[in-house]
Write a protein that binds this DNA or RNA. Structure first.
Lengths: 226, 226
DNA sequence: GACCTCAAATTGACATGCTAGTATGGACGT
DNA sequence: ACGTCCATACTAGCATGTCAATTTGAGGTC
């Protein structure tokens, strides 16, 4: 009898290390270019070097860490080409997802999306930008959840990580959360319309604006962290 | 002075094991559901268990291997949901790639694509279906190469692997290589036109046909290997 | 002072031993 | 015959030791 327990508390050490490092890199607690000393990380997290190595190699595949054999592992620099490619992948996945989602979106899905938008309004009213961006990510994730493509969602999350670092660096003087909210509203309405082409266009428009905001900051960011 | 050599002969053992296992799985030399005994694989390839484990965990992330902790690792079954999701990812990436490629395709790129098509004609004339499909993959890879998105290309290759297994199982009685060739011609011509929207539509049409062919075979394949 | 040389230190890749979780098959009771 | 229980034989995950490649910098040469 198959009795494989997947208790959420029973996460492998590799996964724990992976999550910790990933968050630190995304949140810039680990700066681009910073060296990662396995021994030190292992000691800090109370594990051996093995799970740390595994986690690092996974992050290397996502492009968040550069590994130089027999030399060292470093938090990936922010390269314009990488950022643009991430946006390319994100655009490809999300536009296609919208095209598929709109025609089949049911009331439950729309209710989830509406609730998310309401929460975004609330977060913005309170000036809680961190929470606003968490909701942003949750909104996009909810769309993928609705079309049941868990693997594609994982790819999307991987593609978002490099973009997240740029956003965080550009956060202080980017004054477009209101516009972002408006675009999110438009997205949900486009899904509600049931028109896949229209929804895809709305997503493309949204991500085009994201790309424009990124391009504005990219030169100076890359000058420092690339 | 940075002096990191990337000699192609100096491939890590992990990479070698990864490539070997991946090819065997794609070519069905390792059947869906087959158990993978690390010790045995390590012995056969003349390495230790460590690189085998690393390779397996990478293939697990691609969805080609299912790992059951403390039980075993098995070649992933062919599940309809996985196959459809792979086609979804592939469609998303390739349609978007065409949209970007068409407006910027230069003569050199077009020459490469034309040469590939010519080779496809030749392979088909000789009845060499294996080579024809290699060229198919090379054609799509060339398109991604032209827009310089190496990471996206890697995702595409990962997405193709599950589809490859289905194709190989359906190969005996799928009689549409001529139609595939015609679609490939249309793709290249669409790129030559420079119209991104047109090129994207051509790719979507091509992949829709691929999806249709797959759906025809999926029920019986899944009944056996899923 | 600029350049080269080479040994010490650091690192990732890899080998190998150990632990704990899981399926399996046979003994046993019914 | 049939279901239950438990010893056994697996497994992946993890810990730890080893090795070769690479950087670094001290010391020597011009």
């Amino acid at each position: 009898m198959s009795q494989i327990i997947v208790d959420e508390r029973d996460i492998s050490k590799t996964d724990r290390v992976y999550e910790v490092l990933r968050r630190r890199i995304r949140e810039l607690a680990l700066a681009p270019g910073a060296p990662l000393r396995k021994e030190e990380i292992a000691l800090e997290l109370g594990v051996s070097r093995a799970p740390v190595s595994d986690a690092i190699s996974r992050l290397a595949e996502e492009g968040l860490i550069d590994v130089f054999p027999q030399h060292g592992s470093f938090v990936a620099l922010i390269r314009s080409s990488d950022v643009r490619e991430s946006l390319f992948v994100r655009t490809a996945l999300e536009v296609e997802a919208m095209r598929r989602l709109a025609p089949v979106a049911n009331p439950q899905t729309l209710a989830v999306l509406d609730a998310n938008i309401a929460a975004q309004v609330d977060a913005l009213a309170k000036g809680n930008l961190e929470h606003f961006y968490d909701l942003d990510e949750a909104l996009h994730a909810a769309m993928f959840g609705a079309i049941e493509t868990p693997r594609a969602l994982r790819l999307l999350e991987a593609a978002r990580a490099p973009l997240d670092r740029v956003r965080r660096l550009a956060l202080p003087d980017q004054g477009r959360p209101e516009q972002t909210l408006a675009e999110h509203r438009a997205l949900v309405e486009a899904i509600r319309s049931g028109d896949g082409e229209y929804a895809a266009a709305a997503m493309r428009a949204h991500l085009t604006m994201v790309g424009r905001a990124i391009e504005l900051k990219l030169p100076e960011i890359e000058a420092i962290h690339g």
